[in-house]
């Protein structure tokens, strides 16, 4: 089976390589781009640990092949906060509310929530729970995560008003 050239922009940097078509996007990000913040939890699109933004929208990177992301803009957890500007309000809210324990599922949650609050600036509690239901956390019992999303939403709304 022939390898194919693939080129995509990940967190603002161009990553190019020759890959087998069967290489999943998550494996490309983790192994070819050495961006190991994106995790796999089930490799069948259920747990959400591998969620990344593809052209701005959250998607399961285990359910895409790297060749399908050719030319795309991909944002992983490494492209969200953490640099000189510190944590984003969402990440800070997870820290403030103990929204993570082992941290394995956390990158998927952060990516999901960043996109959710971008698209839904003043969510109801019901919308928050629904938005989180495509990501599985085995440690927290979701209490800290739900509180974190609420805090981040309130903070972002307050910032938008001022």
């Amino acid at each position: 089976m022939s390898r194919q050239q693939v080129e995509m922009t990940v967190n603002g940097r161009v990553h190019a390589g020759e890959v087998e078509p069967r290489l999943t996007l998550v494996d490309f990000l983790r192994e070819d781009c050495a961006l190991t913040g994106t995790h796999t939890g089930c490799e069948q699109g259920v747990c959400g640990a591998c969620t990344v933004l593809v052209d701005g929208e959250p998607m399961r990177s285990c359910l895409m092949f790297a060749v399908q992301a050719d030319g795309a803009q991909v944002t992983t957890i490494e492209g969200i906060g953490g640099g000189r500007e510190g944590l984003t309000p969402v990440q800070q809210a997870f820290m403030d509310n103990h929204g993570l324990q082992c941290g394995y599922c956390t990158p998927g949650f952060i990516v999901t929530v960043e996109a959710f609050l971008r698209d839904t600036p003043s969510p109801s509690d019901e919308q928050i729970r629904e938005a989180l239901s495509g990501n599985v956390c085995r440690c927290t019992g979701y209490q800290g995560i739900i509180a974190a999303v609420r805090q981040a939403a309130d903070q972002l709304a307050a910032e938008a008003r001022s």
Binding site: G45, G48, T51, V54, E57, P58, M59, R60, L63, M64, T112, A115, F116, A131, S133, G134
Partner: peptide
Amino acid sequence: IGHQQIRNR
């Protein structure tokens, strides 16, 4: 259908 991440794709 599934979740937002699924519907996006």
